[in-house]
Amino acid sequence: MVTYPVALGGEQGKLLLLMDTWQDRLGEHHPERSEAIVELRAILLRGLKSSLSGRHREDSANLEDIAQKALLKILENLGTYQGRGKFTSWALAITIRVAYNDIRARHWNNVSLDYLKEQAGDSIPEESVSSTSPDVEAQKKDSLELVRRMIQTDLTTRQQDVLLAALNGMPQEEIASQMGTNRNNVYKLFHDGRKALKRAMEQRGYSRDMLYDSPDTGTYDQTYAQTYVEGGHS
């Protein structure tokens, strides 16, 4: 319960106001609410400018819009701030998510899940060039074939759609929008799908060593980064 010190008046009241947290000051009935909003907005804008500098060029009108949208979201969700880390760090994290959702939506606005499915249907497994022994190569090939088969047999259609879109670099927010759901549900489909695949492969006798002989996640990161930066759909 927040108590407001205005009734105290004078220096004592001012001192107590300074001790109030961001969460207090942004509260609906706080006497400093307007000032707190202006201060926070300035911090969000500055953070946006530095976080988006270099990679994503945004004009200042767009940054203002993003900051405003983020501010509304922060005010709506004030009660969810758990006090873990500084308030401004939490607010900036929300602001950056709003900004990136906006950027990603513009980047992917002409790509449909159906288009990705069609493209996937056309893809041809690559011939691998490797210096490892024929036995290791055969084992690797088997495991990749098993992955493909399990995707077909052990995932639901929605899990397959999410996996395919993710493998092609489509952002979760965009997948969610096209599937008529939200990012959390997309992450859940992605997570449940991975768990189902993992169980299915282990049940089919693939030991951890055989299953996980792949290079580390660098491959995943590189492919994802490449797809996103270059716009894998274009």
């Binding site: 992955v147 299953l211 996980y212 290079p215 491959t219």
Partner: peptide, 10 residues
């Protein structure tokens, strides 16, 4: 992509 899936399962 299958390799990526494997690395995710890991």
């Amino acid at each position: 992509q299958a390799e990526i899936v494997k690395s995710l399962l890991k």
